[in-house]
Structure formats: C-alpha cells, structure tokens
C-alpha cells in the first residue's frame, strides 16, 4: 500500500474519457475513480472498450477527450492556464514509471532470463546499482514462487510462469498502481489458478489494481468493486459481490448469465471458499 497518498484523494481519476480509432468511437465518456489500495475489475463483453480504457491510463493509447489523473497528476499533458500542452516522450515515460502493467500475452523480453527481465527497468530506467536490484529482483521472483526459475529464458517457462515473471517485472519498479490486461486469457486453463493466486496475494498486500478480466470468481472474491462496461460506456458499477449477485442492468444480467454458464459456476456457490480465486476445472479463457 502506498503510504503517502491521503485516502481522500483517488489514486486514479478518469473524467469523461473518449477515444476513437479512425472515427470509430470506442470510449464514449468514461468516468472512473479508484482509491488507493482498491482493487477494481473491469468486466464486459469483448469490444466494450475495457482494454482500450486500461491502455489509456498509462498512455499506450492517447485519449481524444476528457482527463485522466493518476495520483493527482494529469496524464500526458501539462495544463497551463487552461491550455493543454502535450508532454514530451521522456516526460510521458517518467509518468509511466509509477504504473505497472501486465499484458495478456506477457510480453516478456525473450532474449533475457527471468531475472534479467525483472532487473531490466530498475537498472536501466531508474539507474539503480545492479547488485542491489539483483537482490530485490530475486526476492520478487521468490514472492511469485519462481526463485528457482531465475536463470530460465521465457521460452523455457510455462505460460503461467511467464505471466508471474511479468508481474514481478512490473512490481520491480515499485509502482503505485498495477494494470492487468486480461492476464489469464492467453493461458491454458490449468495455469490460470497460479496467476490469479499471485494477483490475489498482491491485492491482499494493499496494491491498487485495475484488472480487465473474464474471471468472475476472481472479480467477486478479490475485487472491492466491479465496473461493467458495454459499448464504450460504464453501464453499472458497485461492490463486487453485490453487482455479480444482483445486477440491476439488463445488459449486465445477460453478460453475467452467459459467462457464468460458460465458467460452470454460480455466483452464490461458495461465497467464502478460501480457494475461490482458483478456477473450477472448466473455465472460459478467451
């Protein structure tokens, strides 16, 4: 948990965010507040804009309208007396250092070992001493359960292991915020559980997380709040158990009904099971 943030101010504040690709409007005015230490899951059918919104937060996509603040800082622009000035490449890079991101397809650096992947940014972006970083990196790999895989190349690791290295790599920059873009969607069903467990531990440690996912059980048990998106707008949001158990909006209801039959699990089945974040044998993973 980040210590310096006062609980009054949201860590992430998105106001009326719009984004269009070649005239096709993907985000039609998203408002979202995420408080420090909060875990928010973005749910919704594919094409609803949830991944695009996540990528807008750390400026992998530039937004067309609205504002995004992270820890009170306007992302991508400098506001001088009401006039916005686009930030330079280096300044945007500096803003991204505060935000960790985990990708659907891991995107580990294939030419570097697991340890080198984790060490890369602290050594070359923060310019910290390799010896100190090494110890921290090994501790992080140990935390995600991969201390014995430190010298393996990504191609020698399973998908689940690669994704856990990717989480460790993002954590190595000591981010205030972690973004997860469908972190288990590219995994074989039996490898989903280990990644969700790592994320769950991270959430319990107080990390602020925004997670785009189709794992309803994870959203229900780990997230404080779920945000249901469809067609580029937020349809419904609220405490995760409440929304998943008693969705108000028709589109949320039909989406949950469809995805829960596919995941072979009812929301009320094991509300307090300790292993609820670990998937049942059949689970949607795309």
């Amino acid at each position: 948990m980040s210590t310096q943030s006062e609980s009054a101010r949201p860590l992430v504040e998105a106001i009326n965010v719009t984004k269009a690709f070649h005239g096709n409007e993907v985000l039609k005015g998203i408002d979202l507040h995420v408080n420090p230490g909060e875990v928010v899951c973005l749910l919704g059918p594919s094409g609803s804009g949830k991944t695009t919104f996540l990528r807008c937060i750390n400026q992998l996509e530039t937004i067309n309208g609205g504002r995004i603040f992270v820890d009170g800082e306007l992302m991508g622009y400098r506001d001088q007396g009401g006039q916005l000035y686009r930030l330079k490449d280096k300044e945007i890079a500096a803003q991204r250092r505060e935000i960790g991101m985990v990708f659907q397809r891991f995107n580990l650096f294939p030419h570097r070992t697991a340890l080198q992947n984790v060490m890369e940014a602290p050594v070359h972006v923060k310019r910290q001493k390799a010896a100190t970083v090494r110890a921290d990196a090994l501790a992080l790999l140990d935390r995600v359960g991969l201390a014995d895989r430190a010298n393996h190349y990504p191609s020698q690791l399973s998908g689940g292991q690669q994704q856990r290295v990717a989480i460790a790599r993002a954590l190595a920059m000591q981010p205030k915020l972690m973004l997860f873009d469908e972190p288990t969607s590219a995994l074989d069903p039996e490898l989903v559980g280990e990644v969700l467990l790592t994320m769950r531990e991270l959430a319990e440690g107080g990390m602020t997380m925004i997670v785009v996912t189709h794992e309803i059980a994870f959203a229900r048990d780990v997230a404080d709040r779920v945000v249901f998106m469809d067609g580029g707008v937020v349809v419904e949001q609220g405490p995760s158990r409440e929304i998943i158990a008693r969705p108000q909006h028709e589109r949320t209801k039909s989406f949950l009904r469809r995805i829960l039959t596919e995941q072979d699990e009812t929301p009320e089945a094991h509300p307090d099971a300790p292993d609820a974040g670990i998937p049942a044998h059949l689970r949607k993973h795309s």
Partner: peptide, 27 residues
Amino acid sequence: VDKGQDEAACALGMSKGLSMRRVILPQ
C-alpha cells in the same frame, strides 16, 4: 520484433531510444 515488446518497454517507463537499444535492436 513484436509490437508488444515496445509496449512492455514503454509500460516500464523506458523512453523510445532506450526501448530501441535495450529491447528492440537486440531482438
């Protein structure tokens, strides 16, 4: 080189030049 590599480098706070030198060119 896969576009995701540059995105991962950017997400870690690398500048375009550093990403090119450390991530893209070696691959």
